[in-house]
């Protein structure tokens, strides 16, 4: 039932929405730092783009409830980008490989191999934004689950290049496993120049705070 509701929400959101500001692939020679926080986890991803098609970097995550953490390498690959006159759409594949440490279910401090795979889609105009992303986690005895999220957004005003841009957005998050639930997080996205920040609070009371900087 939850999956059906979530899928329905995604279809609706993808039908209405548009823009991917947190591109996981930058320009050749570009560095990006992404620090994200929500009610489930904190993450840091630093990546470098050798070309405009892929980026590689370091990723770490800390999942608060289960008290486990991931450290590893992440590869982001731009499968397809469609540039239209007034919109852009992207299709990415992402994958990570590393180690996980957990305090629950395994001996303290014992590291286990961990991996994740990810599909991400987005479409955007200057007024609308929509995206969908899912991820499968595998960390042996520590964690195995599936997470997906969809986002829609609208810009209340159209800013010029260099202005402070503001987006009103909604994120729908579905996670399986012990946490199995769907959450809704309205949030505000601001960006100016190479800096982007997102602040919101979910219907479960979790705070969302994301920061992205591009060099």
């Amino acid at each position: 039932m939850k999956l059906t509701v979530f899928t329905l929400c995604c279809v609706i959101l993808m039908g209405y929405a548009p823009q991917s500001l947190s591109r996981p692939v930058s320009y050749p020679g570009g560095w990006t730092v992404m620090q994200k926080n929500d009610k489930n986890a904190h993450s840091l991803h630093v990546h470098y783009s050798p070309t405009a098609k892929y980026s590689i970097g370091y990723r770490t995550e800390y999942w608060r409830g289960e008290e486990w953490q991931f450290h590893g390498a992440q590869l982001n690959y731009l499968v397809k980008r469609h540039n239209a006159a007034t919109s852009q759409a992207n299709f990415y594949l992402k994958g990570g490989l590393g180690i996980a440490y957990g305090d629950l279910g395994v001996p303290d401090g014992e590291a286990q191999p961990a991996a994740f795979a990810d599909i991400a889609l987005d479409w955007e105009t200057r007024r609308y934004f929509t995206s969908y992303e899912n991820r499968v986690y595998y960390a042996e005895d520590i964690a195995k689950f599936f997470r997906q999220k969809a986002r829609v957004g609208i810009a209340p005003y159209i800013g010029d290049y260099g202005d402070i841009h503001t987006w009103l957005m909604l994120q729908v998050d579905h996670i399986t496993g012990e946490r199995d639930n769907i959450s809704f997080t309205p949030f505000v996205r601001f960006f100016k120049n190479e800096y982007l920040a997102e602040v919101g609070i979910s219907d479960k009371g979790g705070i969302l705070f994301n920061l992205i900087i591009r060099f």
Partner: peptide, 29 residues
């Protein structure tokens, strides 16, 4: 085409201004 996002369009500045022959760039979304 595809020029819809200020944050993403920063890449245009980064790429063009790395060149010694480019004096400046102006983006018009």
């Amino acid at each position: 085409s595809g020029l819809v996002c200020d944050f993403c369009a920063r890449s245009l500045e980064k790429v063009f201004l790395k060149r010694g022959d480019v004096g400046g760039i102006k983006v018009d979304l």
